[in-house]
């Protein structure tokens, strides 16, 4: 549980900025260039102060079959160097069905897999063979989504990838 360790260390650093022991421990943890975060949310209709209906994203605290959830992956370049050829690969849980057309990612080329993430292609190039017959892939067939960033992620900047899925 190194993440927890590390968070604890940061806390310790905040309290004891000259803590030599803590600094030594922190140096043992290799750090990559990107801070990657995934959150899951759902839409909720709320009534604002003006009495108007407003759709907002809230934590996916209550999710029942039929509900749609929204996954948002953020990747922030926390290094001094630009990252390129950034590829985000996200599996779709077995009990979820990708919502057609919902994958979103500025500056990315989005491809899908129907074979557990072995191969990826655009949606219209994917097919599935069932009982000896081949048919075009449907959203329920998708097992993974991949965002291929077309541009480098400069130091200090952040990218985002998002998709919706419906709980079966």
């Amino acid at each position: 549980m190194k993440t927890i360790q590390r968070l604890a260390i940061f806390s310790a650093l905040a309290l004891f900025t000259t803590g030599a022991v803590a600094q030594e421990t922190a140096q043992e943890v290799p750090t990559g260039h990107l801070l990657v975060k995934t959150i899951v949310q759902k839409e909720e209709v709320v009534i604002d102060d003006n009495g108007d209906q407003k759709v907002q994203l809230v934590d996916a605290r209550v999710v029942v079959p039929g509900d749609e959830v929204i996954y948002t992956v953020t990747f922030q370049n926390i290094s001094d160097a630009a990252a390129d050829n950034v590829v985000i690969t996200n599996p779709i849980a077995a009990d979820l069905v990708y919502v057609d057309g919902s994958a979103f990612g500025p500056g990315s080329n989005i491809v899908f897999s129907v074979d557990g993430g072995q191969t990826f292609a655009a949606t219209n190039e994917l097919s599935v063979t069932e009982n000896g017959t081949t048919r075009p892939a449907e959203p329920r067939d998708f097992t993974h989504i991949r965002w291929q960033m077309q541009n480098e992620i400069p130091a200090g900047t952040q990218g985002v990838a998002r998709f919706r899925a419906r709980l079966q």
Binding site: V36, A83, N85, V87
Partner: peptide, 22 residues
């Protein structure tokens, strides 16, 4: 997330609800 820096492939990084860079 897979990525390159300076043309060199780096070890992938997995996401975490609170953020991960290891």
């Amino acid at each position: 997330v897979d990525y390159n820096v300076g043309g060199n492939p780096q070890t992938f990084i997995l996401s975490d609800p609170a953020g991960n860079s290891i």
